[in-house]
Structures are given as structure tokens and as C-alpha cells.
Simulated scan of single mutants.
Amino acid sequence: MTSAWTNETAIQQWNSGSTRESMEATAERGDFAKEHLLNPVLLRLLGDVRGRRVLDAGCGNGYFSRMLAGRGAQVTGVEPAESLISFAREKAGEGISYVQADLARLPEMEPFDAVVCSMVLMAIPEWKPAMRACVEALRPGGLFVFAIVHPAFEELLGTWRKYGEYRQTEYLAEYEIAGRDASDFHRPLSAYLNEVAALGCRVREVAEPGLDPEMADGIESHVRMPNFLIVAAETGCPLMP
């Protein structure tokens, strides 16, 4: 299972799997799911970011960093994969700086008002140190927003197309899910929420976005079931050792 994986091996996968073509295609708003399901909720949960220091943790090609900067935030994007951060730096505009680092081993930085970690934690073998680093990067009362593939509906589209319904045979175990560019790792929803609580955060909202039926066009499964989970939490309680 995930014991054979390290963040370094996962980073190598993302580095080799991220082509220039794919990064250019998603440089403005991300892919279809990010544009129509994730971005609107992430931006709503983050609220007015004008003048706020925001950490885009695992920023990938930097598209969301650029969206945040366009709304007036002072953004630091962190990304370990060389191909992705090189592209992000190439496209960077005013109000953005980038740091190449493993999320589980963030360098010391000035505290942030908000940390957003979108579609990253389920792709990290060492996800607990990464989540802790995100929380520790916040000022007291800061906002931590993370998005993951919904643990209950990870292979939603494929099984829906095959069976006309969603099917899952294993939920409680942890296991690897091989992907086109890199692997994800299944963990129960309780693992993420319990870790947020253990890190002294108070959950403000949990969102399970569904696709607008007018946008479905052959992916009805995303109208009926949530393929993604988004959590907003705020710091304030002491961290557990």
C-alpha cells in the first residue's frame, strides 16, 4: 500500500506526468472540474482576499495563485515538482511569489491569513505532515481550506459509465489509485476530518459540490453525486503534539 511510497516518489510522478500541453490547457482556470465544481466554492469559502496573505499549498501550474492575485491577494505558491513550478514562475504576475518545496517540509515563512490546499492531500503519501505544515503556516484565527477527491466517490465517472450507477467495493482500507499522470491514495473521510480536529482547527463548512445540470453533457453522475469534498476550517486551538 502507501508504505512503499514517499512524497519524493509521488513528486517524481507529477514532474514527469505534467506536460507543457496539459499545463497550457489548464493555465487559466484549471480543468473542467476545477472550473465548474471547485473554483467557485474555494473562492466563496476564502471570501474577500484583498490585501490578505494567502498560501497556495501545492499550487501546481499556478492557475489558482493567479486567480487569487487577480482578486488582490498577496500569494505565495508552493510546489515541489520542477516542471510545474517552472511553468508557474513563467506565468507569474504581480502579487505572486513561488517557493519550490515539499509541503511536508515547508520552509519558515511569515504567517498567512489563509492557506488553500486544492486537490493535493489525497495525492501525498505523507499527508499528515503536509496538513500540519499548512495549519502551522497560519496566523491564529487563520483560514485553512482544502479540497480532495471525495473518498466515497473517487471513481465516480468510470463506474457510472460502466454500470449506470456508482459502485464501490472497499472504503475503510487505505490503498493506491493509479491515475493517468500520477497516483492518488484512498483514505476514509474520517481520516481527514479527525486530523483537522487533532490540529486544533474548528470546521466552519464542509461542501460537496454538484455539477449544474446544464453543464453535464454526458457526465450526469456529477449532477447526482459529489466527486469532490471541500473543507473550510479555522485555527485557534493548541496543536496536539
Results as ranks from 00 to 15, higher is better:
Thr6Met: 02
Asn7Ala: 09
Thr9Cys: 10
Gln13Met: 11
Ser18Leu: 05
Glu21Arg: 08
Glu21Lys: 09
Met23Lys: 13
Glu28Gly: 15
Phe32Thr: 01
Ala33Arg: 09
Glu35Gln: 15
His36Ile: 02
Pro40Tyr: 08
Pro40His: 05
Leu42Met: 12
Leu45Gly: 00
Leu46Asp: 03
Val49Thr: 02
Val49Lys: 00
Arg50Glu: 00
Gly51Gln: 01
Arg53Leu: 01
Asp56Trp: 13
Ala57Asn: 13
Ala57Ile: 03
Cys59Val: 02
Tyr63Glu: 00
Tyr63Asp: 01
Phe64Trp: 02
Arg66Ala: 03
Leu68Thr: 00
Ala69Gln: 05
Gly72Thr: 06
Gly72Cys: 04
Gly72Phe: 11
Thr76Cys: 13
Thr76Ser: 08
Val78Trp: 14
Ala81Glu: 01
Leu84Cys: 04
Ser86Val: 11
Arg89Gly: 03
Lys91Met: 01
Gly93Pro: 06
Ser97His: 08
Gln100Ser: 07
Gln100Trp: 14
Ala101Ile: 04
Ala101Arg: 12
Leu103Pro: 05
Met109Leu: 11
Glu110Gln: 10
Glu110Phe: 15
Glu110Ser: 05
Glu110Pro: 07
Pro111Trp: 04
Asp113Gln: 04
Cys117Ile: 03
Val120Gln: 09
Val120Ala: 07
Val120Asn: 08
Val120Trp: 14
Leu121Met: 07
Met122Ile: 10
Met122Glu: 14
Ala123Pro: 12
Pro125Met: 03
Pro129Met: 06
Arg132Glu: 15
Ala133Gln: 04
Ala133Ser: 14
Pro140Ala: 06
Leu143Tyr: 08
Phe144Cys: 00
Phe146Ser: 03
Ala147Asn: 06
His150Glu: 05
Pro151Ser: 10
Pro151Ile: 04
Phe153Gly: 01
Leu156Trp: 15
Thr159Glu: 14
Thr159Ser: 15
Trp160Leu: 00
Arg161Phe: 09
Gly164Trp: 09
Thr169Asp: 13
Tyr171Phe: 14
Ile177Asn: 11
Ala178Asn: 10
Asp181Glu: 14
Ala182Leu: 04
Ser183Phe: 06
Ser183Asp: 10
Ser190Ile: 07
Ala191Tyr: 15
Ala191Trp: 14
Ala198Met: 11
Cys201Trp: 04
Val203Cys: 08
Val203Lys: 08
Ala207Cys: 11
Pro209Arg: 11
Glu214Val: 08
Ala216Ile: 01
Asp217Pro: 14
Glu220Met: 07
Pro226Cys: 11
Leu229Phe: 09
